[in-house]
Design a protein around this nucleic acid. Structure first.
Lengths: 207, 207
DNA sequence: CTCTTACGTAATTATCAGTAACGTAACAGA
DNA sequence: TCTGTTACGTTACTGATAATTACGTAAGAG
């Protein structure tokens, strides 16, 4: 049986337990080359052949690890995510502003901003990829937002009937809208203004 | 000189003034076939060859009118836009709710929702296309939002320092975020809740 | 009529994702 | 040390599809 017929590709994980092991340096080299190319030319113009060339690796070596270009890109982006800090400053408003500013940095300073448009297109056509992206990139981030808002509710800064998901959407939605649709830069002071908007609606009388 | 060297393709417009005129029925047939395919399979899987087949037209006939698949798709989407009604109900809040609900319909009921992800990717790689999309689709719509908000400010429903663009982003951003990133359906009652959020921040004391 | 452009057919170029075949290299376990 | 299994590189290939070109014919304008 030829190697290319092994059913599960186990992206990012090891291959089989027996036989010659995969070279871990290769994984790193591929991911690094992917990030590099991604930030230079954006998703659409990244070709697997060019990634292979820059990583000093063969194309089959890449497809042995990731079944699709899009999966490779998602994993490469995961390596760019900083471990989100659950900074509890004691003020939910300040925490939300910090989280918003962090997201702005992520979308404008890391390659993610250049990657997202192409990835969005792939996600729409590939549910498996969409699930990967949401589980690996979105969910871990949203967790912190949830926590900050829940803390605000618990402390009385935010009303008990605060709609957590609605608030998160209200804060992050405009950022993606700017990045993906209008192409305009995010206004300075956005984080503060957006959080202010939310608190005008959901703050309690006491706070 | 061969026809394919004519520098400006004049998408959607007429060709030259002399010589055999273009068949206007063809324009319609092409656009109709494009919309049809678009709603069936989404942007990525639309091929120009298949559009040509369904329209009963040759491929060069399409490229004579539109220089790229993406331009064709944008023009096809334009034909789907209803002429925005500047319904002035007397209440800016009601007008904004109506506009938001209209946008939700546009994104979920027309093919635009299936087209947008692929288009976003093209826009990121093609500034000319991005400009087309923004001028033909986004701007005409935003005009109504602007007007509604300005009316609200003039009537005293909204504070004089209301940041118009910020408000528009706050209302529409989450819709695009859901459509393009999370893939989750838009919550029932979103329009009302979002407008409520804005008014909690920007309403005047008198209103 | 003549000029010019539109049109269809058919072939072509170019790019790129993803596979396949095959020989060689590396590790695990007997 | 031998054997089985998998990784790796090289090379070639398939398949899809955007975009172009050549050429002969059709249809208008003046």
């Amino acid at each position: 049986m030829s190697e290319s017929q092994m059913a599960p590709r186990r992206p990012g994980g090891r291959g089989s337990d027996i036989g010659r092991p995969r070279d871990p340096d290769m994984d790193q080299a591929i991911l690094r080359a992917t990030i590099e190319l991604l930030s230079e030319v954006g998703y659409v113009r990244v070709s697997v052949a060019e990634v292979a060339r820059r990583a000093g690796v063969s194309k089959p070596a890449i497809y042995r690890r990731w079944s699709q270009k899009s999966q490779l890109v998602v994993e490469a982006m995961v390596t760019q995510m900083r471990p989100g800090n659950d900074n509890d400053s004691g003020s939910a408003a300040d925490d939300l502003i910090a989280l918003t500013d962090q997201l702005i940095d992520l979308l404008t300073l890391t390659p993610l901003g250049r990657v997202l448009p192409g990835l969005v297109a792939e996600m729409a056509a590939d549910p498996v990829l969409a699930a990967s992206y949401r589980n690996l990139i979105i969910k871990p981030n949203v967790r912190h937002w949830h926590a900050a808002i829940e803390r605000g509710i618990a402390s009385g800064e935010l009303a008990g009937d605060t709609d957590v998901d609605f608030v998160i959407n209200a804060l992050v939605g405009p950022l993606y809208f700017n990045l993906l649709i209008t192409g305009e830069p995010i206004a300075a002071g956005y984080a503060r203004a957006a959080v202010h908007l939310v608190f005008a609606r959901y703050k309690t009388a006491s706070s």
